[in-house]
Structures are given as structure tokens and as C-alpha cells.
Write a protein that binds this DNA or RNA. Sequence first.
DNA 1: ATTTCGCATGCAACTTTGTTGCAAAAAGAT
DNA 2: ATCTTTTTGCAACAAAGTTGCATGCGAAAT
Lengths: 138, 138
Amino acid sequence: MEAQIDEILRKNQLSVTGSRKRILELFLMSNGALAHGDIEKKTGEKFDRVTVYRTLQTFLEKGIIHTIPTSDNSVLYALCKDNCSEGHHHDDHVHFICQKCAKTICLADVHIPQVKLPGGFLPHDYQMVVTGLCAACR
Amino acid sequence: MEAQIDEILRKNQLSVTGSRKRILELFLMSNGALAHGDIEKKTGEKFDRVTVYRTLQTFLEKGIIHTIPTSDNSVLYALCKDNCSEGHHHDDHVHFICQKCAKTICLADVHIPQVKLPGGFLPHDYQMVVTGLCAACR
DNA sequence: ATTTCGCATGCAACTTTGTTGCAAAAAGAT
DNA sequence: ATCTTTTTGCAACAAAGTTGCATGCGAAAT
């Protein structure tokens, strides 16, 4: 785990620091999406709020994590798959938001289908979000 | 237009007030999605910030508008179609957000394609948002 | 191992966004 | 016109996110 974390950071030309290691560890352990607040709580106030924001921002820019749209507009972050590169994500799967437990789930196997846009539109990024009840809540 | 606005409000058992008429008018004119900030700007500070929030909240509860999740986590609101009823929307078209002019456009003719979810998930609502450049900005 | 340099961090102050309670004002009904 | 209920504006607050700057730590070279 330690080695994996270091490798990810090095691969992205990021220096290996305490907050980066810890926050990355949280993502690897949680295998789901995290809100900024979650991260602050779980780091136990070991890092400054600003540091958490900046670390997330850095990870976003490097393509290590991506944001997930939610219906209540809280910001969620999740690890990108290996094939994400700087500035260009391949986060082409559908996200599911449970209305009961409010969890956001990456449906990694459900790809976003192609749509044909009217002439003139130049698409860059596709997002698809399904809300409903997850398996555990229904 | 005036008559149409009144009708919508009456149909939803809402008293017809200045801010409701104005905000509803904005939605009808803009045939797209609006952020809370847009509304504040376009009403020219005629209404209190709090009033705008509460009006949007009321419209949401009545099913007159719905929120659109975006990946950058700005809150967007859009008019529901006539067949939306309280708590159950049929807003089945794709939304396009231009990265340059920041406008959100309802692609009313582009329907959200069906996706097959893993077993156990009970879908209720589908949202699809495409970001990129609109015809005017490219 | 020590030094050096640049990047990351913490702090403080600030901005932006959204919420709550309450009194005044406007809508709707009689 | 008057009464009742709902909506609005104000003020104060709470939460979320940003910026500038001085300090401290990581990485690489000596």
C-alpha cells in the first residue's frame, strides 16, 4: 500500500508529502467517492483545511481523481482509473446516486452511451447520472 | 406570457407574487438552465437573495423546475415539462453546457439513451449532461 | 550528511454561497 | 375595506471555498 501510494505520486511528478500520502490512502481504502468534508473528518484535523483543498485540486489537475456530479450539489471526488491522463479523463461510466442513503456509486461497468448532437455543438465531456434506490436500500 | 405565468402558478396553488412571476418569466424566456447567480444578476437586485433561494426552493417542491447535476458542482435549475408532476419528473433530454459562454442549453430533441444497470438498482431519474463548445462559441 | 532551492503547508483574512428567525408587507378570501 | 395567511426583506449567522505570504519540508546535488 505504501509502495503503491508512492508510485502513484511519483508517476505524476508530485513530491511525496504527508498530506498527499494520507489523502491518497483514504481514496484507495474507501473504494468509492469522498466528499471534502469526509476527508477533513478522517484526517482528524491533522491537516489544514486549505491543504486538503489544494491537495484535491492538485490530484484533479493530474488526473488522479475526478469530480462526480450529485443531485444535492455537494462535491464528490473519486479515484480515476489508470487510463486517465492529465487534462483528459476517461471517466466514461455512469454514476448512481441513491435517494435514500445518499451514497454515490461508480457503475464502472456501465458505459455512457453515445448520443448524436445537433450540428455545431462540439462535445468534450459526457456525464450521466442515474438517481434511484441502490441494492441495499430498496 | 403574463397569462401563462399566472396559470402555472395558480395550477400549483401558489399565490402570484412579484418575485415568482419574474423568476418564472426568466425561465420561460431563457429556454435553458439557470444558475442561482444568473437569476440574481438578471433580476437586477430587485429581490433579496433569500427570496430567490426560497422561490427556487418552492418551485422545486412543486415540480415546476428541477436541478441539473454538473461536474463542476454549480447548481443549475431548469423548467420541467408539462408532464412533470410533484416529485416525479420526465425531463428526458440531454443538457449541453458551453464551457466558454457558460450557457446551458436544453437539447430537447436529444433523448437520453437507455442504459442497463446492474441487478438490484432501481432507477428513478436519468440525467445526461454534455459539456463542450456551443455553435456560437466554437 | 549537509546544504540549497523550490514546492507544499499553515495561518489569517476574506469572499462567496446558503440558512434561519422575526417583523413588516403583500396576497387572497370574506 | 378588513381580516388572515403567506411571502418578503432584513440582519445575523453558518458553511464552503479562495488568496497572499511567511515558514517548513522534500528532493536532489554537493
